[in-house]
């Protein structure tokens, strides 16, 4: 039986890969994908704790996280399509319409 710590460390590694990718990539789609990576790391932690404490609440929370992730990526892609109509770019450094 694999210990709880293994799952937590794997979750931390994946979360930080996602967070680093979100900060360093320029492409908007990759940034959304990195957010999905972070959601999955959180789900892994929740399920690992659910198994560890023999309590199913963690799995229920994961179901809610998956639903919110679906909503978030739908809204995010719609926003990017709207931005793309105004400004033909996918570079996150150039989308600064609301900056000044």
């Amino acid at each position: 039986m694999i210990q709880l710590d293994h799952y937590l460390i794997l979750g931390a590694i994946i979360f930080f890969i996602g967070l680093t990718g979100m900060l360093i990539r320029r492409n908007i789609f990759i940034i959304l994908m990195c957010i999905e990576l972070m959601f999955n790391a959180v789900n892994l932690n929740l399920v690992a704790f659910s198994r560890h404490l023999s309590n199913l609440d963690g799995q229920i929370f994961s179901i809610f996280v998956i639903a919110i992730a679906a909503c978030e990526s739908a809204i995010g892609l719609a926003i990017f399509i709207a931005v793309n109509r105004n400004k033909e770019t996918f570079d996150i450094d150039e989308v600064n319409l609301m900056k000044w």
Binding site: F29, M33, V47, A48, S50, I66, A70
Partner: peptide, 26 residues
């Protein structure tokens, strides 16, 4: 990994929703 944690329903949901739904949208 979810299956190795005995969360079979969540594993199925992961493949249906993420690999089947969200990624197709992407």
């Amino acid at each position: 990994l979810f299956i190795s944690l005995e969360a079979e329903f969540l594993a199925g949901l992961q493949i249906f929703l993420y690999a089947g739904g969200i990624m197709v949208m992407f």
